[in-house]
């Protein structure tokens, strides 16, 4: 069972109208691992995640989740299946309170008692959110908003968590914290994580495997440790 990927993209093409953002992306994510997708601006990293979630429609190719084809599954059904995304730029609900943001993460769930328990669990995971549970989401700092976005996604009880640039616009110390939490979630809950990052160094340190995307295509696929030592990667993405 463990050698069957939980999420698999086969030659996926998609784009925005006449602009083709993805030109045949193929990747595999095994259950329980952290996979990083790195690449430059506009390489198609975020589009890959948005295509998996069905926000950007697939033009060609197949996306399999737990062995099922999900090309045509509408975006709002995916959280019920255990596939949830923390979108780029956090996109929390600014004029709803922190608690309401979390409740919305559990929108598809019916188990009221468990939801209340999970909210308390989120506050244990992110104590700062507990302190600010009554505050509007929009009044939080960038790092707190990122934590809220992750906590909100965890409320859906995901099997696979898609993270889009969790380090975007955050101070280095906060980024460290966020990545530690990501590693914790993966280890303790066994949540599979597909991570999209521009900060290649951090992403590859956290991940077990990595993909390099360039102009809509996968150009390299390897273990994260070997990517980190790959001279080409070091030159292109790690600034050496």
């Amino acid at each position: 069972m463990s050698d069957q990927p939980i999420l698999e993209l086969k030659n996926v093409h998609s784009g925005y109208g006449s602009i083709k953002a993805l030109k045949g992306i193929s990747l595999k994510v095994m259950p329980g691992e952290i996979v990083a997708i790195i690449g430059a601006n506009g390489a198609g990293k975020s589009t890959t995640l948005m295509t998996i979630c069905g926000i950007v429609p697939v033009e060609k190719g197949e996306i399999y989740y737990q062995g099922k084809l999900i090309n045509r599954v509408s975006p709002e059904k995916l959280p019920t299946m255990g596939l949830c995304q923390v979108p780029e730029g956090r996109r929390i609900f600014p004029r709803l309170s922190v608690e309401e943001n979390l409740i919305l993460g559990a929108f598809h769930r019916e188990d009221k008692d468990q939801i209340a328990k999970d909210i308390r669990h989120s506050y244990e995971l992110f104590p700062i959110l507990g302190e600010r549970s009554r505050q509007h989401g929009g009044t939080l700092s960038g790092g707190e908003q990122q934590m809220l976005a992750i906590a909100r996604a965890l409320m859906t009880k995901p099997k696979v968590l898609l993270l889009d640039e969790p380090s975007l616009g955050l101070a280095p110390i906060i980024i460290q914290q966020i990545f530690k939490i990501i590693a914790d979630i993966n280890r303790e809950e066994g949540t599979t994580i597909l991570l999209v990052e521009q900060n290649a160094n951090l992403a590859l340190q956290a991940a077990s495997r990595g993909y390099v995307v360039e102009t809509g295509e996968i150009t390299l696929e390897d273990k994260a440790s070997s990517l980190l030592t790959n001279p080409k990667i070091r030159e292109a993405y790690l600034g050496e």
Binding site: I55, E76, P79, I92, P94, R95, L96, I103
Partner: peptide, 24 residues
């Protein structure tokens, strides 16, 4: 109600609401 909260999430950010499982 639950419906009201779904509406508010759509008002705040439609894409995010969709990603959280709200049938917008």
């Amino acid at each position: 109600s639950r419906v009201g909260r779904a509406w508010e999430s759509i008002r705040e950010d439609e894409t995010a609401a969709e990603l959280m499982g709200v049938n917008t």
